[in-house]
Computed example of a mutant assay.
Amino acid sequence: MIGIVGIVVIFVMVFGGYLAAGGKMGIIMKSLPFEFTMIGGAAVGAFLISNDMSSVKHTLKDVGKVFKGPRWKPGDYRDLLCLLSELIRLARQNPVALEEHTEDPENSAIFMRYPRILADGEAVGLICDTLRSASMNYDDPHQVEEVLEKRMEANLHHALHSSHALQTMADGLPALGIVAAVLGVIKTMASIDQPPEILGKLIGGALVGTFLGVFLAYGIVGPFAARVKMVTEEDSHFHQLIREVLVANLHNHAANICIEVGRQNTPGHIRPSFNELEEALKQAKTKEAA
C-alpha cells in the first residue's frame, strides 16, 4: 500500500507543481507516447540483453515486493520459533523419530502445522539439512555455522540480483533520455525554417525526452530497486534466525535457551515478545499432545 501512496505522491508533486507554475500539459502529452516508446523500449531491450530469461522472470516477480512488502510477518517468526522448538525437543528425546520429519517434511505432522514455512523450500531445507547432519555426527557448531553462513550469503546474493538489475536500468535511463532528446533536436533542425512558435514546440517536445529519462530513473525505477533490496534483505532475517537457533542447539544449550537466542536475534520491529512467544509455545505443545 505504501508503494502505491509513494507513486501517487511523486506524480502529484511533480506534475502538480508544474501545472501550478503555469506549465501546460499539452506539449508533454503530445510528445510522451513517442518519447516513452524510445526510452522505455531501449531500457527494456538493454535489460533483456544484460539478463538471462530466469533473471528476467525473477526480476518481474520481485517487482511485486514494492507493493506487497516483506514476505515474512511477525507471526511467521513466532511460528518459526515454535517449529524449531518442537524439532529440537524431539531431536533430544527421540533422534530416530526425528528422521521421518527431516526426510519427508511435506508429510510431517510437525511441519504441516506451519504451512507458510513449509511452502518455503529453502527454509525447510536449512532446517532439515542441519538437523540431518547433526544426526550423522556433523555437529561442530563453528563448522556448521560457517557452512550455513556461506549458504545464506549465496542465497542472498542471488535474491538481490533483481534489485541490481533494476538499479542498472535506472542508471541508464537518464542517458537514454538524452538520446531521445538529441533525436528530437535533429528533428527540430530539419524544420529550422519554421516560425518560432513551431520551433518552440519542437524543442519542448525534445526536452520531454530528457525529463522522462531522469524522472523514470530517480522517481520510479531507482526507488523500485531500493525497495526490492530492502524487502529482500529483511526477508533474509528469517533464514538467519534458523541459523542462530540451530547453532545454539549444537552448542548443547537448553531448548528454551536456543529459542530465546533466536528471539533476541530477530529484528526489533518483528520480534515477538517473551510472553507472546511463551503463550505460542504452550499452544504448540497442546496441539502436539492432541
Rank of each mutant, 00 (worst) to 15 (best):
F34W: 11
W72M: 11
F47M: 09
G69W: 02
L83P: 05
F36C: 13
L90W: 06
K57P: 03
F36D: 06
P95D: 13
S85A: 08
A97T: 11
A46V: 13
E86H: 04
G41C: 04
F67L: 14
L32V: 14
H58A: 10
L84R: 02
L80Y: 00
R78K: 12
L90Q: 08
I49G: 00
K68Q: 09
M38P: 02
E86Q: 14
N51T: 15
V56M: 04
K57G: 10
K61D: 14
F67N: 06
G75T: 14
L83H: 03
K73N: 05
H58I: 02
P74R: 08
E35L: 06
K68E: 11
M29E: 14
D76V: 10
F67R: 07
G75S: 10
A91T: 15
N51V: 12
G75P: 08
W72K: 02
R78T: 12
N94D: 15
M53L: 10
S31R: 05
V63T: 13
K73R: 09
A97S: 05
E86A: 07
V44L: 14
L48H: 01
E99H: 01
K30N: 08
K65P: 10
K57M: 15
L80P: 01
G45M: 07
E86P: 01
D62F: 02
S85I: 05
V44R: 03
H58W: 06
L81Q: 04
E35N: 15
D76W: 00
I49R: 03
I88L: 13
L48T: 03
L84T: 05
P95G: 07
G45P: 15
A46D: 00
K68R: 09
V63A: 01
T37G: 01
S31T: 10
L87R: 08
E100G: 03
L84E: 02
P33E: 10
S50G: 06
K61H: 12
Q93C: 06
F34L: 14
L87Q: 05
E99C: 02
P95A: 09
A43T: 08
V44H: 01
K30I: 14
K61V: 15
R78Q: 11
R92A: 09
F36Y: 12
R71S: 10
L32M: 15
A46M: 09
W72R: 04
K61Q: 13
P95L: 12
M53P: 05
H58R: 12
S54L: 09
V66K: 02
P95E: 13
L32C: 10
R89T: 15
F47Y: 07
S54D: 15
L80D: 01
P33Y: 05
G64I: 15
G40R: 09
G64M: 14
M38G: 03
A46G: 05
D79E: 13
P95S: 10
L60D: 08
P74M: 11
N94G: 01
R78V: 01
A42G: 04
G64E: 14
R89H: 11
V66C: 13
K65W: 00
S54N: 12
G41H: 02
L83F: 00
I88E: 03
L98C: 09
K68I: 14
F36G: 08
G64S: 14
M53A: 01
P33F: 03
I39A: 00
D76H: 07
K65I: 10
S85V: 07
P70H: 07
L81W: 04
Y77C: 01
G75Y: 00
M38N: 06
V66S: 03
W72Y: 15
N94S: 12
L98N: 05
D62N: 15
K57D: 14
L60M: 09
